[in-house]
Simulated assay, not measured.
Amino acid sequence: MDWDRVEGNWKQFKGKIKEQWGKLTDDDLDQIAGKRDQLEGKIQERYGLEKDRARQDIDDWFGRQTW
Rank of each mutant, 00 (worst) to 15 (best):
V6T: 08
K51A: 12
G41I: 04
A33Q: 15
T66L: 15
M1F: 13
E45K: 12
E40S: 15
E7N: 14
Q56P: 00
G48M: 01
Q56I: 02
D60R: 13
R53H: 03
I58G: 01
Q12M: 10
I17S: 03
A33N: 13
K14T: 12
E45L: 06
D4G: 14
K14V: 04
A54W: 00
L49D: 00
D27E: 13
V6D: 07
Q20T: 09
Q12Y: 11
Y47Q: 01
I32K: 04
D27R: 11
E40Q: 12
I17D: 02
D30Q: 07
L24W: 01
E40R: 09
D59A: 08
K16E: 05
D60C: 08
D30W: 07
K23H: 09
I17Q: 04
A33M: 10
G15Y: 09
D27N: 11
D59G: 02
L24Q: 13
Q65W: 09
Q56C: 00
R5P: 02
L29T: 05
R36E: 11
W67N: 14
E19V: 12
I43Y: 00
V6I: 15
E50T: 10
G22N: 06
Q38D: 15
I58S: 00
L29K: 05
Q20P: 05
L29N: 03
D28K: 07
E40I: 15
K16R: 11
Q56W: 00
D28G: 07
T66D: 15
K23L: 08
K14F: 00
E45M: 06
E19D: 10
Q31D: 10
Q20G: 06
G41P: 05
R46F: 00
Q38M: 15
G22K: 09
K14E: 14
E7K: 15
E40F: 07
Q12T: 15
K35R: 11
W21F: 09
